[in-house]
Simulated scan of single mutants.
Amino acid sequence: MQVHPRGLLNSALEVFDRLGMTPWADRAGSELTATGAQDQGPRAGQGAAASLTPQELQIARLTAQGLSNRDIAAQLFLSHRTVGYHLYKAYPKLGIASRGELKERAVSLGL
């Protein structure tokens, strides 16, 4: 019997959402999108973070934890300039203008 990865990822995404396991739900959602499935849009409970791409979300979370662009870049195997670009794109989507504001409002933004 052959099992299709999309079915497993859909099931995992539903369970993770139901249990409020946001990081795992985000990962399952991004992996599901990587299989070619259409993005289902914002999920319940994500707040403003629902409008971010998976990469922007990951970088925004690390930024909210206080990491520098260089630290984030090293952790994600990216250029610090790429990290800056993703933050540049994420800030307007989140309705914020600075790292400090991101850190202060992380919980209310769904990060």
Rank of each mutant, 00 (worst) to 15 (best):
G47I: 08
S11T: 14
Y85I: 04
T53L: 01
N69M: 06
A12D: 00
M21W: 11
L19G: 08
R61I: 12
S79P: 06
Q46F: 12
A48S: 12
Y85D: 04
R61A: 13
H80E: 05
A28F: 00
S68M: 06
D17T: 15
D26P: 01
I72M: 01
G29A: 09
G41L: 12
F77T: 13
A37W: 00
V15M: 13
L76C: 02
N10C: 09
V15D: 11
L87F: 03
S30R: 15
P23I: 13
G7P: 01
S79A: 12
N69H: 10
R27E: 10
E14T: 15
A37Q: 11
W24I: 08
R6A: 13
D26L: 10
F16K: 06
Q75E: 14
I72C: 02
A28N: 04
A64C: 10
T33P: 00
W24S: 12
T35K: 05
R70Q: 13
R43C: 09
S11E: 14
A73C: 04
L19A: 15
L32D: 07
G41Y: 09
G47D: 05
R18W: 03
T53E: 01
L57T: 08
E31T: 00
S11N: 13
R81H: 03
Q55H: 11
H86M: 05
E31M: 04
T33L: 13
R27N: 07
Q55C: 04
I59L: 04
G20Y: 08
I72H: 01
Q46S: 14
H80G: 00
T33K: 13
N69T: 05
R6Y: 00
N69I: 01
F77K: 11
G41M: 11
G84V: 03
P54K: 08
P23M: 09
G29D: 07
L9M: 06
S79R: 05
D39R: 12
A50C: 12
R18A: 13
R70D: 10
R6H: 04
I59P: 01
Q58T: 14
R43M: 11
L19C: 11
Y88S: 15
V15Y: 12
Q38V: 15
